[in-house]
Structures are given as C-alpha cells and as structure tokens.
C-alpha cells in the first residue's frame, strides 16, 4: 500500500542528502586541494590566481548552499 511509505519523500531524502551531505564536504575538500595540494605553488612560491579563484568559487558555493538551505527550511509553509 502506497499510503504506508512516502516513496517520493524518501527518495528525496536520499538524493538530496547525497548531493548536499556528501557533495558539500567534497567541494570544500576540492577548494582546500586547490589552495594547498601538490603543485599549488609556482616557482615563486605563490598560489596562481586561477587556483585561488577556483578555491573561492568552491567555498562560495558551500556557503551559498548552506545559507539558502536554512532560508528554505525556515520559510517552509508549515
């Protein structure tokens, strides 16, 4: 009986949890790698601009996602 299991909600929980719960730490990790991984510093000992940009893009997405998630949950019509 479909009334006993809310398949749609459960599938949403799995998929969104995976994207957000595993994706955000992974994105954060990519940002860290861009800043501090091997080859992140050039011969002059500086981090190339493209790596800095990539890293901050990662961090920005992470922060943005968290912020919008909180807003979304807070504004839910309950």
């Amino acid at each position: 009986m479909s009334g006993y299991i809310e398949w749609n909600a459960l599938v949403d929980v799995i998929v969104i949890s995976l994207i957000v719960g595993a994706g955000l730490p992974a994105l954060f990790a990519l940002g860290v790698r861009a800043l501090a991984g091997t080859g992140s510093r050039n011969d002059a000992g500086r981090i190339p601009r493209i790596r800095v940009t990539a890293a901050f893009a990662c961090f920005a997405v992470v922060f943005g996602a968290i912020f919008s998630a909180i807003v979304l949950i807070g504004s839910g019509h309950h």
């Binding site: 595993a22 730490p25 954060f28 860290v32 790698r33 991984g37």
Partner: peptide, 11 residues
C-alpha cells in the same frame, strides 16, 4: 562524503 574528501585531499 568521507571517501570523496579523503580522495581529493590526499596530496
């Protein structure tokens, strides 16, 4: 999540 994080930051 852990697998992805550990993989991306292993170096």
């Amino acid at each position: 999540g852990t697998w992805l994080v550990v993989r991306s930051t292993r170096d």
